[in-house]
Design a protein around this nucleic acid. Structure first.
Lengths: 337, 337
DNA sequence: TTGCAGCATGGGAGCGCTCTCTGTTGGATG
DNA sequence: CATCCAACAGAGAGCGCTCCCATGCTGCAA
C-alpha cells in the first residue's frame, strides 16, 4: 500500500503474505478451502495493512448492495423518530445498511428514485411519507421491493403494513361513549392521508353502531399547531365533549387550546383521545389517552415483507395489519360499567 | 436484457442502440464528446430498457462512494430528529447519500466501523452519540474524515462542532439573576457528556462573575423522566428557585414535577431554563425559556468540516463553535431592568 | 490534391473482488 | 512402485463502468 492510499487491496495483502490474491479472498470467506497456515499469514498481513475486503466488487457481481432505503418525512414527530430508529437497528441486525432518504413530499421522490436505483438498493421502505399511486407504479416498474406504512396504494412490487386504524377508531368511539361523551368530533390529519381517513372511518362506524350520529370533522395537518387551530375552529362553531384526534401531536395541541385558550377542563368538560403514544402523551401535563401503534410490530412486519419480496418476487398489494393497543389515561373520564 | 434481470447494463443499451459501450458511457457523462445523433439513439435505447448507470463501478475506481455515515443515538429526542433530518437533507443536496447508523453506546461502534469501511464511506458524522477517545483514535487510523458534534475528543481525522455551551450557561446565570433568582441549581445530563459539563461550567462562571456561589447540581440522563426525578431529588433536599437544565426534555420533566408533584408555580415560585428549543418547549403547557442550538448552523458547519477534510486531509482537533440563541419565554419571570 | 486540426467513435485496460478451473502436492491404497 | 484422491494453491475471467488511446472522418487552409 502506497503511503497516500486509504485502502489496501487484497492484492497488496497477497504480496505481503507471499500468497496469491485468491488465497486472500478465500481466507476471508467463511467455509472456503484454505489451510490454517495460509490463513494465518494472510490475516497477519491484512492486519498490518489495515485491510478489509471491499463490498463494492461484490455488489457489482450480484447487483445486491445490502442497502435498504428508508424514506421518511417529518422526523420532528418523535413517533417517526422512534420508528426510524427501530427500523435502522433491525435492518442493521439483519445485515443491511440503511440509506436514509428524507423527503418533503412525494413529488420530490422522482429525482431520488434514480439515485436509489444507481446505488442498487435492495429494497425501499417508505416509512411514513405519503405515497401516491403514480409514484408507486413508477417504483414498481423498477422491480424493487417496496414496503409502505399506513398507505393504501397497490402495485406489483408494493406491499404495506398498516396499523389497525379502523379498529382503533371504533374503540375510541366506544370508549368515549362509555365515558359519557355526547358531542363527538374528529380532528383529522391531512385530507390525503389514508391513515387519518381510516381512523375516521372506524370512528364513524363505531358511533353508528352505537346508534349515534356523525361526528363533526375538522381537517388539520398532523401537527401541534394544527391541532390547536383545529380545536379553536371546532369550538368556535359549537362545543364538543368527546374528541378523537388523528395523532398525538394534534391531540396535545387541542388539549392546550381547550385548557389554556378556552378555559375548559380535561377530562371533566372535554375528553380527548390521540394516536401513536408518543413520549409526550405520557407526560404529566397531558396524560393523554391514546393508542400505541406498536412500532415494534410495524417494523417487524415491514421487514418480513421486505424479506419475502426479496426472496419470492412481487407480492401485489399484500397488506399486514398490526394491532393498536388502547391506552386509557387521564384525558378521558372513567367509563361507566 | 434478459427478462428476469433487474438492471440493464450499458452494454445492453449499446447493443440495442447499435453503438459502442463507450458511446453509452459518454452519453451519460456531461461534457463528453458525443454527437447529438448518437446521444439521441442512446437515450432512446436507455429509456426502452430502463437503464440508469450504476454508480458501483465508479466507486470501485475512485474509492469514493458518495456515502456519508451519520451516527445517532436516541432519536426519541425530537431535537435529534430535527438535526438528523437537516443533515440528511443537506447531505443529499450536496450529492451524498446518508447511511444511517443507530448506536446505543460507542462501544458498539467497533463492529459498525468495519462495515462502514467495507462500504468505503467518504466521511462519518458522529451526530450525537458520545464518542470516546479510544474510538476516535481507532477511527482516525482509517483516515476517514470524522465530524463529531458536542464532544471534546481530539484526533487527527476528527473535527468537531459544538454549540456555545459555555456562553449559554453564562447567559442563563445572568438571566435567572436578573429575574430575581436566588437559589440556583443545575439539572445535569449524563456525567460523561461534554455538552452537559460545558453548560454547567458556563453557568458556574456566570454565577461567579455575579458574585454568587456554586449552584447545586443533580446528575440526570437527558430524559423527561430523568428531569422529573432530578427535580424531585433537588427539592427533597432543599428548594431552589432558578433552575438551569442540561436540555429541554430534562426541563420539561422538571417543570411537571415542580407543578404537579410539588404544587409550586412556574415562574412565580420557580424559574426553569432548558436547552435545544425542541418543539414541545414552545407548547402552551410549558412555554419554556430555552436556547435555540441553531441546528441549521450546526449542520452547515459540520458539513463544511467534512468538505474541508475530504479535500485537504486531516484537520486535527479543529473545532467550530455555533452560537446558541437565547429564547426567553414564560418559564422565567420578567427581568428587572 | 495534400496536410492537419478537431471531433466522434470504438477498442481495451483496469478497478477489487468472487468463482471456476486447472495444477500440484502428499499420503493412502492396490 | 504406480495409482488415485483429497486438499489446497494459483491463474484467469468477468462484473459494469470510466478513462486513455488509436483510428477514422470531416472540413478548411495551403
Amino acid at each position: 500500500m502506497t503511503p497516500g492510499k486509504r485502502y489496501a487491496s487484497s492484492t497488496d495483502v497477497a504480496r505481503l503474505a507471499g500468497v496469491s490474491q485468491s488465497a486472500v479472498s478465500r481466507s476471508f470467506t467463511p467455509g472456503a478451502s484454505v489451510s490454517a497456515e495460509t490463513r494465518r499469514k494472510v490475516m497477519a498481513a491484512a492486519d498490518a495493512l489495515g485491510f478489509r475486503p471491499s463490498i463494492i466488487p461484490q455488489i457489482m457481481l450480484t447487483n445486491r448492495s445490502g442497502l435498504v432505503a428508508v424514506i421518511v418525512g417529518g422526523l420532528r414527530n418523535a413517533f417517526y423518530g422512534a420508528v426510524l430508529e427501530r427500523f435502522a437497528t433491525r435492518l442493521r441486525d439483519a445485515g443491511h445498511q440503511v440509506l436514509l432518504v428524507p423527503v418533503e413530499s412525494d413529488y420530490s421522490l422522482d429525482t431520488v428514485l434514480e439515485e436509489l436505483r444507481s446505488y442498487r438498493v435492495d429494497a425501499i421502505v417508505s416509512g411514513l411519507a405519503v405515497l401516491s399511486q403514480e409514484v408507486a407504479d413508477a417504483l414498481s416498474a423498477f422491480r424493487i421491493p417496496i414496503v409502505s406504512c399506513n398507505t393504501s396504494v397497490t402495485s406489483d412490487w408494493v406491499a404495506s403494513v398498516d396499523s389497525d386504524n379502523r379498529g382503533a377508531g371504533r374503540v375510541a368511539a366506544e370508549w368515549l361513549r362509555r365515558c359519557g361523551g355526547t358531542r363527538f368530533a374528529y380532528l383529522a390529519g391531512p385530507e390525503e392521508s389514508p391513515a387519518s381517513r381510516d381512523r375516521l372511518d372506524g370512528f364513524r362506524a363505531g358511533l353508528a353502531a352505537l346508534g349515534l350520529g356523525e361526528p363533526r370533522v375538522v381537517i388539520g395537518d398532523y401537527s401541534y399547531d394544527g391541532g390547536r387551530a383545529a380545536a379553536a375552529r371546532l369550538f368556535a362553531e359549537a362545543p364538543a365533549d368527546a374528541i378523537f384526534c388523528a395523532n398525538d401531536l394534534v391531540a396535545l395541541g387541542a388539549m392546550d387550546a381547550i385548557r389554556k385558550r378556552l378555559g375548559l377542563r380535561i377530562p371533566e368538560d372535554v375528553m380527548v383521545i390521540g394516536y401513536d403514544d408518543i413520549p409526550s402523551a405520557a407526560w404529566d401535563s397531558y396524560d393523554l389517552t391514546t393508542f400505541d401503534q406498536d412500532p415494534e410490530g410495524l417494523v417487524v412486519q415491514a421487514l418480513d415483507l421486505v424479506r419475502e419480496m426479496s426472496e419470492n418476487g412481487p407480492a401485489r398489494g399484500r397488506v399486514r395489519v398490526v394491532e393498536a393497543r388502547f391506552i386509557p389515561r387521564g384525558s378521558t373520564r372513567n367509563p361507566t360499567p
